[in-house]
């Protein structure tokens, strides 16, 4: 009797382990740092990537269609100093504009899918040397400005549609300017 109970308990634990590890893996395995030192992470959507099934599964599990293969999808939740992005702080996003047909930068409460506010290629105001400077702040700011979530921490998403082949994607820096 005790042997049956032991086998049943152990097998059930194996099943639970499989489910829990799968759910955790869907949320993280397909997301890789762009470079070892980068704060930006990218969802691996290239069909040659071995973690593709986890990336696609991540979006599908959230009830979302996976991004098309022509899209590069970057996320980050840390500023340049390695601190979590928070709604009660002001951040400056700066960088060269990525050569692509379209891009969108948006903020969302950490762990959620729906963006709170966004800036796209069609509306961004650039400097003469094609640099982008954008403020993330709960209060109005001059120039490009997006509003963070209501409270808590947030994540920044940078979605690049059809980047120019052969050109590197330039990811902007995020610097905290105050809280």
């Amino acid at each position: 009797m005790s042997r049956v109970s032991f086998s049943a308990v152990v097998l059930l634990a194996g099943v639970l382990l499989g489910v829990i590890s799968a759910i955790n893996a869907l949320g993280s395995v397909g997301l890789k740092p762009v470079t070892p030192a980068s704060k930006w992470n990218e969802w691996q959507l290239n069909s040659a990537n071995t973690t593709l099934v986890y990336s696609l599964g991540h979006f599908l599990s959230d009830g979302q269609l996976p991004p098309p293969k022509s899209v590069r999808y970057f996320v980050r939740s840390l500023d340049e100093d390695g601190n979590s992005l928070r709604v009660d702080c002001v951040y400056v996003v700066e960088g060269k504009v990525t050569p692509a047909r379209w891009w969108t930068m948006s903020v969302a409460p950490a762990g959620t899918a729906a963006p709170r506010s966004e800036l796209s290629a069609g509306e961004a105001v650039l400097s003469q040397d094609k640099n982008l400077k954008m403020t993330i702040s709960a209060h109005p700011a001059p120039g490009n400005w997006i509003v963070p979530a209501d409270n808590g921490s947030l994540s920044l998403r940078f979605i690049v549609n059809e980047p120019v082949l052969g050109e590197d994607i330039i990811l902007p820096t995020i610097t905290k300017s105050g809280c």
Binding site: V10, A13, G14, V15, A22, V53, G57, H58
Partner: peptide, 18 residues
């Protein structure tokens, strides 16, 4: 057997549940 079961469940979940 439980570890094998865990691996099978993990693969099945990742492939079919999403």
């Amino acid at each position: 057997a439980a570890l094998l079961m865990g691996v099978i469940v993990h693969i099945s979940y990742v492939l079919f549940a999403p």
